[in-house]
Structures are given as structure tokens and as C-alpha cells.
Nucleic acid binder design. Sequence first.
DNA 1: GATGAATGAGATTTCATTCAT
DNA 2: AATGAATGAAATCTCATTCAT
Lengths: 207, 207, 207, 207
Amino acid sequence: MTDRSIASEEKRRLILAAAVRVFARSGYHTSRVGDIAEEAGVAHGLLYHYFASKEELLETVFRETWSELLEAFARVEESQEPASEQLRQVAAILLRSWRRDPDLVRVLVREVGRSQTLPSRVEEIGQVFRAIERIVERGQAEGELRGDLEPRLASWIFYGAIEEILTGWVLGQLDDSDEEVAAAERAVVDVVVGGLTVSGTAASRRG
Amino acid sequence: MTDRSIASEEKRRLILAAAVRVFARSGYHTSRVGDIAEEAGVAHGLLYHYFASKEELLETVFRETWSELLEAFARVEESQEPASEQLRQVAAILLRSWRRDPDLVRVLVREVGRSQTLPSRVEEIGQVFRAIERIVERGQAEGELRGDLEPRLASWIFYGAIEEILTGWVLGQLDDSDEEVAAAERAVVDVVVGGLTVSGTAASRRG
Amino acid sequence: MTDRSIASEEKRRLILAAAVRVFARSGYHTSRVGDIAEEAGVAHGLLYHYFASKEELLETVFRETWSELLEAFARVEESQEPASEQLRQVAAILLRSWRRDPDLVRVLVREVGRSQTLPSRVEEIGQVFRAIERIVERGQAEGELRGDLEPRLASWIFYGAIEEILTGWVLGQLDDSDEEVAAAERAVVDVVVGGLTVSGTAASRRG
Amino acid sequence: MTDRSIASEEKRRLILAAAVRVFARSGYHTSRVGDIAEEAGVAHGLLYHYFASKEELLETVFRETWSELLEAFARVEESQEPASEQLRQVAAILLRSWRRDPDLVRVLVREVGRSQTLPSRVEEIGQVFRAIERIVERGQAEGELRGDLEPRLASWIFYGAIEEILTGWVLGQLDDSDEEVAAAERAVVDVVVGGLTVSGTAASRRG
DNA sequence: GATGAATGAGATTTCATTCAT
DNA sequence: AATGAATGAAATCTCATTCAT
């Protein structure tokens, strides 16, 4: 029974991984269930033993990735580091995912937030933003980050900067060599976190 | 003849506008050509009198909007303002488009940069980034902006921050009242441009 | 009024000739009304001033050609020549039409007798066969042609031989140089008429 | 697996046979894929499981029939009979096919040589003609058939005579009772083969 | 007569999903 | 678990024909 579950779970993974590759290659709407089955080396009927629909495949990819991400962010939040360091770590987690699993990033960048924008999905995306938001809020409370910015907006700006760099890599428009990935990480932190930092704001200097 | 051309052009616009509304409502892939025709109040066959395919409709929306955007950016570049002011203007152009034509923004945010990522489309997107890049480069050359950041990366960070705020509005996750739109504009400029500004960088202060 | 009629008739001819060229090039079903209009250099709406439908275009081509053919055959029948000479003339008329108007032959060979086989069309085709039949019958009555063959069958055999040679030219499978056209004419007469002739049958000689 | 293959092959045949009936009834272009599916008693989608397109259905009918025909002709060629007897057999094969499968003949007579006249199809038609040609050539070489006729032309004349009789049956213009089929066979052989035979030519008698 | 915008029935094809084996 | 034949809703696109101008 356990053997079977394990074998079963492995096949589930196999199909899910195939789906990620195919979605990455062709986009969700253009991908056919048959392509995924072929990529996984199984009959297309089998997909429906493991997943209710093509949509559920994407949903599962999205949810599993997102929950890993949330866990990683939670660990960051638990650390006692300053907010700026925590933001650096968040940027690192997101940006390094590109080299770890480019296809996964391709799928998430392309398909999440768009298409039907299912409320459930929006809700989960919101959790990521709220994690960043909380870091910003704490930074502000502790006087590390400037207090005249809505943490909400700040978190979207921060996340957007990171996602766009990922998009640049996905589109092949930005160099994604090791050094460039590191440079991107530094750049995001320098610019956004720098811009968020107390003594580092244009506003403060203007005032 | 001119009358006819004008009437013809008006109908073309009518269909294009309907397409934007329908794509905004349902997303490109989920929208049906028949829905667009119905929204425009014409027979679906007529669409093919003006556009070669459903794809060409999206392509046209994209291209026309993008070229207007490029023109607006060109005008900004021509002004003799400091780089930071030019960047503020760029942010204003992009962010204010939301209130002007939410459906258009919805379509562009959801469908551009994703889907098939046609090389031609990537190329045109690239032009927008290069405009921002040039502003950053000039700002660096004139000592207004910090010189230790790749203008390329900076432009992606800047654009990403803006696009994510638009996405927040599209998803109904960020408040888009007049005040909030103004706040968003200030926030992007404060954070990103602030972070880019010479005396305002964490790095410079750390170093 | 007469001027107008003449100009009108000329335009009708123009369209009809364009239709023949287009049908010859693409086949009736694959040809589009718009192609014919373009070939004729008029708006496609104009076709419907002169012809009720695409079908009527083909029908007209067919009917006009066929009636010319019948007239030519009638003149042959009226001559006082022996049946074998009349058959030679019939073969000549049909085979020489290829060089005179290849597109017309292409259309007739491809589209007539096949497709919907409208009863009206079948009836008119029948008239051609009956003309040949009458020649054979007279030849038999006068003892010039062997009497043990149904004139009906003989006429189909004769016509089939000729049509197939035309088909060979249409398909580019038989050489259609001047000499070959002449050779084909001789061959059909030699073989079929020779085979039909009294003393010239294998059967009679074998017996 | 074999069971499945056999069942699968049977269904393929079922669809192909239905296609022949429908094409025979309405002609290729006028037939709808849905009609074929209905005639076969399957969902129309299933057609695309077995055939790539409506066109491929016709192509398959054509190719399979043609290759059977070629095999039959090959067997005739292998026999040691005189050329005239071999030609009789060829005529018999072709003409008897009408009673065996009228719908198939209807389709072949109507649709072959028309439509796009695909080069591939022309090529296969050519093989049939070459088989006849070889028989004629051998008959000439052995002195059985008159040598002053191009075998090429002779084969087209022979085939045309036969096809036209088939056409007469298809159009309901020639009687196709058992006796008439036999008579047609005799007539073709008498006339064409008679005309081809050495001492039996009008030309030779004239000269 | 002439134009071409407009119509809309209809055709092929795709493909997610089901289900008998 | 696994297969792949079978289904059928649905979507895009074509094109003959009409008709206002």
C-alpha cells in the first residue's frame, strides 16, 4: 500500500513536472493535454486519474510553488535580521529560483495574475505581498525604513521590480549569467531597499 | 471616397474598442470572436473584413498603444528636465493610463509579455525599456543618478514597479482612488528614483 | 441604348472569360467569386448584375461552349462526307479546341460530367453523344461501318478516347506540340474509326 | 492489442466505406464531414482519429483503389497471353468494377483528375497508363499490334474509351444490365483493340 | 452600372474529457 | 493503474450573396 502510494505519488510528480515543461514551452492555453501526457510518457487518459482537469494542473503547480514560497518567506520573517536584510533575502529567494527551475518561473511569470484571475489565486498571491508588507511595516516601526510610504504600495513596488527582472530573463532580454543574477539581486536591494531606507530618500533630502 | 474611408475607419475603431472591452472582461484566449462582434454590434464576418484574425486584433491593440506610448516617452526625452523629473513623467504616463482606459490597461497587463512572446512583440517592448534606459544613462552621465548601476537593470526595475501597481489595480488588490493613484506615482518616484539618486543610496551610505 | 447594351455585353464577356481562367486555374469549387472579380478587374458585387450565382457562371460557360459544339457538329452532319470522314472532323473539332482555348478545355474536362451532374447538364451532354451516334448509325446503314455494334456504345467510346487525350494534355501528361496534336487526331481516327470500320475489325478478320 | 488493432482497423474501414458512399452521393466538395460521420454512425471527431482531414479520406480511397488496380494489372502483365487478350482483361477489370462497387466507381470517375490535380495523384494515374502502354509495346514488338502508333497515345485512347463507358453508367445514360456490361466489354475490345490490330487498320487498308 | 461593406449560414477542425477495456 | 478510442461542444474562419450608396 505504501509502495503503491509512493509509486503513485511519483507518477503524479512526473506528470506535474511534464506539465510545467509544456506550459513553459507553449503557454497554458496553447498547451494540449495530449502534449503533457506525451512529455510525461503516459497515456493522456491517465492524467485524469491524478488531476481533475487541465486547469487543476496549473492550479496545483501554482499552489505548491506558492506555498513553498510562503514557507520560505515565513522563515525569513522569523529571523531577527533588520528589515532591509530580510528584504534582501526575499529578493534572493525569488531571483535565484530562475536558475533553479527556469521552466517553473516561466510558467509563473506568464500565467499567474493573468487569465481568469481566479479569486482564490488572487488571495494566495496576496499572502506573498502581505509577507513583504509585514517586513516593511516592522522596518518602519523600528525606524529602519522611512515611515511616509504605505507598506502596501511598497511591497508591490518591491515585488514588481523583482518579477520584471525575472520576466527579462524569461524573455531572454536580460543576461542571466551567474554574475548578472547576483548583480540583479544587488541592484534590486540597492534601488528599492535603498529608496525605502530612512536616510536614503529623495523626499527626506528634498524636505 | 473620403466619406467611405472615414466611415470605414470608424467601424474599424468600433471593432477594436469592442475587442479591448471583451479581452479585458474575459482574457484573450477565453474571448470568442463572436463576443467581440456582438459587443461591436456587427456580424462576426465583418471582423475579418478589417482584421485577418483574432490574433491580429490583439496585435493591433498592442501595437497602436505601444507606439503612442513610445511617442509620449519621446516627448519626455526631448524635454530638458533632469532625469529624475523625466522618470517621474514616465511613471505618470503609465500610471495615469489606468484611469483613462482601464480596459486597455487590463488587456496590456494580462496579455503582453506573456502568451506566445512573439519576437516582434518583444522587440517593441524592448523599445520602451530602452527609452527609460537612455534617461537613466543620461542621468548617470550628468551625475544626477548613481553610476554604479546598470541602466538596463534599472530600467527593468523601474518599469516593473510601475507595472505591478497597475496589476494591483487590475486585480482589485490596490486602491485606485484619485488620491491613491497620486500616492502611487509619488511612491514609485520616491522609492525607485530615490533609490537611484546619487546621495540617496544605501550603498553610498554604507560605503 | 444599343451602345450601353454593347458595353454591357462586353463586360459580361469579360467576366465570363475571367471565370474560365480562374476555374481553369483552381477548379470550380476552390475558386472564389472574389478571385473571378479580381481577375476581371471589377468589384465582386458586379458579378451579380450579370449572373445570378457562381454556379450560373459555370453553367453559362458550359452551355455556350456546348451549343457552339453542337452547331459545329450539325454542320459536319450536314456535309455529304462518309461517316468515317465525319468522325474525323468531330475528332478534329474537339482536339483542336485544346490549342485554341486551353483554359476552356481545362474547365470542361474537369467540371463537366462530374460534380453535381445536374440533370439539365446531362441532357445537353447527351445531345453531343447523339450527334456522334447518328453519324455512326448512318455509317452502319450505308454499310460503311460495321453493324454489329451499338451506335450508342460506339459514340461513348469514341468521345471517351478523345476526351482522355484532352485530359492528358490538361494534366501535362501527354505532349501537346503541333505535331502531337495532329498525331493524336490521326491516332484516334485510326484506332477507333479503324476499329469501327467494316473490313477493319479484328473480329471479322479472325473469323 | 491485436484485438484492438483489428477493431481499430475495422472502424477505419467503416469510416472509409461511409466516405465512399457519401462522396458518391454528393460529390467530394458538397459532402460534409458530418455526413460521413453520420453515415458511419460515429461522432465526427472520430474521423480525425483515423484521418488527418477530409482530403485525406478521398486521398486514401483513391490510393488504395489505385494500388489494387495496379496489382491486378501486374498479374495480367505477368500472364503469357497475347497483348490483345491482356487488353481485354484490363478492360474487363475496369468495367466489371462498376457492378462490384458502383459508389467507388462514381467517386473515382468524378473526383480523379479534378480538384487540385495533385502531382502525387497524377503520378499514380500515370502508373496505370504505363501498364497499358507496356502491353501495347509488347504487342507491337511481337507483331501482334500495329507498330505505327505511339503506345502512349494508344493507352490513353484505350483507357478513355473504358472510362467513358463507366461515366455513362455513372450518369445513368448507358444501360448497365449484365448483358450490357458484357456488350460494353466486347465493344471496347472490338473497337479499340480491333483498331489497334495489325491487319485491321483503316490506314493500312487505305494505303 | 458599379462598388465594397455587411451579413450569416455553415464548414472543418481541435481538444478536453469520458469511459470501456 | 493504465490505455486510447470515442465523444461532441465549441471556435475560428470562409465566402457566396445582398444591398445601401
